[in-house]
């Protein structure tokens, strides 16, 4: 195996405009957080796509396992009352 070291893998999240949520845009390699932040800027906002950047070490992300996906997500399938379209509102009632 190679002795070379290409740095730590980081995940990058970009906020396109103020007030919008941060969305995952991609990854990059860097040796420290300053370099990660600057590389994220140079790599993922060079077409003016960014207003804000979050970076996080890939190894620090806790991800749901695909294998327990069913037990994890299915129970919320039947809770339609969490969605606004579940409720009947009489015609003519506005701003609700």
């Amino acid at each position: 195996m190679s002795s070379d070291d290409q740095g730590i893998l980081w995940e990058v999240f970009i906020q396109v405009k103020a007030g919008r949520p941060y969305k995952h845009i991609g990854s990059l390699h860097a040796y420290d957080k300053e370099m990660a932040m600057k590389s994220a800027r140079d790599l993922y906002t060079r077409r003016n796509e960014g207003n804000g950047i979050w970076i996080v070490k890939a190894e620090d992300i806790i991800s749901s396992e695909a294998s327990d996906g069913e037990a994890f997500f299915d129970p919320s399938n039947d809770k339609v009352y969490r969605h606004p379209t579940f409720y009947k509102i009489p015609d003519g009632v506005k701003h609700i």
Partner: peptide, 27 residues
């Protein structure tokens, strides 16, 4: 040319999600 470097980078990162590190790809 800078875009090409970027595209290579996006793709290395996509490939890395399959469990192989960039060091290995370069080797």
């Amino acid at each position: 040319i800078q875009d090409e470097a970027g595209h290579g980078l996006y793709l290395y990162c996509a490939a890395e999600t399959l469990g192989v590190k960039r060091e290995q790809f370069l080797e």
